[in-house]
């Protein structure tokens, strides 16, 4: 039986952000921009949506007098990503894993 997938994560950029953060746990805005290849505006919008969903925490700080936005995966975000991945598995016949 196919399980319905979390609509928050069924977006290319939001899923890419979450997949990145699941490895590094936290990253600054520029690192996420480099990793995803997204435009600043688009990335900003999707980060806000993930923050509204409680999947990431956003901390605005300063580094060398320049503003720095750090995105951190929340426990809720980790649980959501794991649930999404497990639900995704139901769509595939073969056993698979991400190494």
């Amino acid at each position: 039986m196919f399980k319905s997938l979390d609509p928050i994560l069924l977006s290319q950029l939001r899923l890419a952000i979450m997949s990145h953060l699941i490895v590094v746990r936290e990253a600054d805005f520029n690192a996420l921009k480099d990793q995803t290849g997204a435009t600043a505006g688009n990335l900003s919008v999707q980060i806000s949506k993930l923050q509204e969903a409680g999947y990431i925490e956003v901390e605005k700080t300063y580094k060398n007098n320049y503003p720095l936005t750090v995105c951190k995966l929340s426990p809720r975000g980790i649980a959501a990503f794991e649930a999404f991945y497990n639900d995704l598995k139901t769509y595939f016949d073969q056993d698979f894993s991400i190494k």
């Binding site: 609509p7 699941i22 990793q35 995803t36």
Partner: peptide
Amino acid sequence: MENEEKVLNPQESLRIIRESIDLAKS
């Protein structure tokens, strides 16, 4: 990644997870 609201199918989701995780590791 300009299609911010593009709804993914399961295959695309899996591909993005794999690619993003590989990229994050590297």
